[in-house]
Write a protein that binds this DNA or RNA. Structure first.
Length: 283
DNA sequence: AAGTCTTCCTGCGAGC
DNA sequence: TGCTCGCAGGAAGACT
């Protein structure tokens, strides 16, 4: 899926065309994505005004004037495209309906918000805005990596005694919410930590060094508009650029970027996910 | 309890 | 050109 930077980019793209606007019609073209849609979802969206949009972890939260919040998760292949509205200097006309356009929100100003998800690992749900923290997909999430609650003290304490590889620990959304496979690989390279190291056996000062590096990588990726791989696009259809900044992700066999290293980047599988790293620079 | 594996889907590129 | 295979940004739930 789009990870935190991609979700943030999508949210930023759709917020200007949704905030304050009425959803004139919600077109729901199938009964489910990963899970069934909430009961009467189309009716509960139609006629509602959008109060604002937020992001929590990899979820986009759309607050409605019905005291309900629409939760959107992009899964691995979910895209949200805006059409019929100006975005920056560009106007994007409505495209022809495409395969896997599962939900289309027709805004009263003429804009359309189209949710397309080939693999259907994404999700949508509605919940009372006041009880959003209790939602089963939200309640167990760890702190936001760009927020104040995520700091060196927290991470050191949270990883203490953990027997799982640091790679798996950073992918655990209960520990820190929003990181995915790409950015964890990049962060561990920057930190010089081998992804196979047991989380609880890394010196505290090295664990602490991860915190600013995580923030740096995410900020850089957000500034670049996210990373475009396979399915992901920004909401205006443009590509993000951070993939050009990958130092290890998807670079198996290519030379390490560290000056005077040039060792081929390794790929291993950890808990079913590819880990890319430099066996020379990461210990 | 904690850690790991399997599974949900479709699409695409590599290799033959 | 057309097949089969492996792999893909997530993460819940079933295992061990």
């Amino acid at each position: 899926m789009p990870e935190l930077p991609e979700v943030e980019t999508v949210k930023a793209g759709i917020a200007p065309v949704m905030t304050g606007q009425l959803i004139a019609k919600a077109e729901v073209n199938r009964p489910d994505l990963r899970w069934p849609f909430p009961e009467n979802m189309a009716d509960r969206l139609t006629g509602r005004r959008v109060l604002g949009l937020r992001r929590r972890s990899k979820y986009i939260l759309v607050d409605l004037d019905s005291a309900e919040t629409l939760l959107i998760h992009l899964g691995m292949s979910g895209r949200i495209l805006v059409s019929g509205a100006a975005q920056g200097a560009f106007y994007h006309p409505h495209p022809a309906p495409a395969k896997h356009d599962h939900v289309v929100l027709h805004m009263d100003g003429g804009a359309r918000i189209t949710f397309n998800d080939a693999r259907r690992f994404g999700a949508m749900d509605l919940m009372p805005t006041a009880a959003q923290d209790d939602h089963w997909l939200i309640r167990d999430l760890g702190p936001e990596p760009l927020g104040n609650a995520f700091d060196e003290t927290y991470l050191v304490a949270r990883l203490k005694g953990r027997n799982t590889p640091i790679k798996s620990a950073l992918l655990d959304q209960r520990i820190v919410a929003g990181l995915g496979n790409i950015y964890v690989c990049e962060v561990l390279f920057r930190a010089g930590i081998d992804p196979r190291r047991k989380a609880g056996q890394i010196a505290a000062r090295r664990v602490a060094s991860l915190v600013p590096l995580i923030r740096d990588v995410l900020h850089e990726a957000i500034a670049a508009g996210g990373s475009s791989l396979r399915d992901y696009r920004q909401s205006d259809g443009e590509l993000g650029y951070f993939q050009h900044g990958f130092q290890v992700y998807d670079r198996e066999g290519a030379p390490c970027v560290t000056p005077d290293c040039a060792r081929p980047i390794s790929r291993i599988v950890q808990s079913g996910r590819s880990s890319f790293f430099c066996a020379q620079c990461q210990r």
